[in-house]
Design a protein around this nucleic acid. Sequence first.
DNA 1: TTAAACATACCAACTGGTTAGTATAAAAAC
DNA 2: GTTTTTATACTAACCAGTTGGTATGTTTAA
Lengths: 206, 206
Amino acid sequence: MPRDGTQTRTKILDTAEAMILDQGYSATSIDKVIDAVGVTKGTFFYHFENKAALARTLVDRYAAADLSMQREFRARAEKLARDPVQRVLVFIGLYEEMMEGLTDPYPGCLFASYLYEANLFDDGIMAVIEDTYLDWRRELGAMLDAAAAAHPPKLPVDTADLADMFTAIIEGAFIMSKTLKEPKLVAAQLGLYRDFVELLFGGERG
Amino acid sequence: MPRDGTQTRTKILDTAEAMILDQGYSATSIDKVIDAVGVTKGTFFYHFENKAALARTLVDRYAAADLSMQREFRARAEKLARDPVQRVLVFIGLYEEMMEGLTDPYPGCLFASYLYEANLFDDGIMAVIEDTYLDWRRELGAMLDAAAAAHPPKLPVDTADLADMFTAIIEGAFIMSKTLKEPKLVAAQLGLYRDFVELLFGGERG
DNA sequence: TTAAACATACCAACTGGTTAGTATAAAAAC
DNA sequence: GTTTTTATACTAACCAGTTGGTATGTTTAA
């Protein structure tokens, strides 16, 4: 076996992702990436067929990490609480907890970054983002359905919409946190979402 | 007086804004803009000193329109309702109403578009976005303070955070609406925000 | 007839991508 | 236990096309 190239490949991916969140995909030229990594253009095109393949690899990696964390937090919430409402609250709380630990403003979401340059990407790439949002609607929606079945909500809300609200708040809070340079803003918004769910399904313990 | 150039100038601005929301600022080359408008490069550089001046003009125009609409809706809400809580609910409702009228997915927010290419813009441009978000926090925050004074909230929430939540939900809903191609998503999210405020400050009429 | 509103023709720098060739280290042959 | 082979991992130089920007000229309408 020859020498291992996975380190170089990962460094290219990490550097490119950070640069894309900073200045967008279009302005992140291959030349700038390889300069930052310290490799040549040949190395880049050895690891990736073209710039679009880099974009695809990045979004796949990002979506996989997102879903992985979602599953982990769902599993933890199921163990930590028995009542469906409490499980949702714990699930949101776990994300809140994570965001409270931030010292720098969140660098941003790769999905949102791609969306605001959507016309530069093919349908396959945008479908990854779409599927991830729909997965969130489905999975968190199911948790909220269970909550609604156990404790009827104070107002008749659509659980799919309420699930979407989590994603929307996260995306919006990322934008505001980065703009205002306030690292705690994301956790604060998740706290409000948690308050809303708690008010909706009542504060009773299960 | 020679012929009037304001039409050309406005057409350049409108076309550039639409293209930026579609593919970002970096990928929106001057060549592409002038091709779409049907003028030459000389015309572009007659109206704008450089590409950065175009970016600045666009963000100033966008911020002005945003604040103008905010002030109009605040004035209308003040006339339509007397109770501070109801005024907030009507204010949110006016935005909801507007978004319900959409048939195409919302094309996106120029602020968010700029933010995800933030490193390409100078501090002056980013400050316009920052100031606009802070204005929302201040103005909607004041409305919520008045609401809280009239009807103590069910949970102790920070009104600045609750005001930020409006902005965050709008920004996040724009992203989701565009991604999922669901024009009604923005109005649905505003409806949930309205529900939250109503639950928080009680449903009593003033 | 003059100044604003446009057009034409450029340029240097950078873009994504290709080429032809080299270094590395493990495996296969002796 | 050397030597040869082989696939992987990389480099430097280059290409055609595009980028933001400029210099200079022409049209238009009061």
